[in-house]
């Protein structure tokens, strides 16, 4: 891998819920092509997928900005949704505000944010009620 950072941008479209995962699949492909350790790729892909799904479920879509350097991958998922009023609660495994429809699709288990934390080396959630949420996920490539 060269020393230059690779940056990727994806729009997360909420119109087609079924397309969820396109951004994370794209990042997974890129990392595989770069020869990143598959176990590390899996961690990034899963954490990013959860963030992507959250943006669709709760915020009607958003954007993903990814920066890949030889040392680490940083994924920033931002949305203009309702924001998270109680972050501590939201981080609790099993706690969910997802709708019945979303649950019927197999989501809303309250595992999204806990999974993101579990699979990343560093995670930051910045949220303002009524304005939106930015989730930053960092995975060290040599971890």
């Amino acid at each position: 891998m060269s020393n230059q950072a690779i940056t990727l941008h994806y729009d997360i479209d909420a119109v087609d819920f079924s397309a969820a995962g396109e951004a994370s699949s794209g990042v997974k492909r890129t990392l595989n092509q770069l020869g990143v350790n598959p176990a590390v790729v899996k961690r990034i892909a899963i954490a990013m997928y959860e963030a992507e799904i959250n943006a669709i479920i709760h915020a009607g879509g958003g954007a993903a900005d990814v920066e890949i350097t030889p040392e680490r991958v940083e994924v920033k998922i931002s949305d203009n949704g309702p924001g998270i009023p109680d972050l501590e609660k939201a981080m609790t495994a099993g706690w969910s505000t997802a709708s019945e429809t979303v649950r019927e699709l197999g989501f809303g288990a309250g595992m999204g944010l806990p999974n993101m934390k579990r699979y990343t080396d560093d995670m930051k959630v910045e949220s303002k009620v009524g304005e939106g949420t930015v989730v930053t996920l960092i995975v060290n490539i040599n971890s």
Partner: peptide
Amino acid sequence: DLLSWAIS
């Protein structure tokens, strides 16, 4: 069947 559970 819970996708978030399955994925992890």
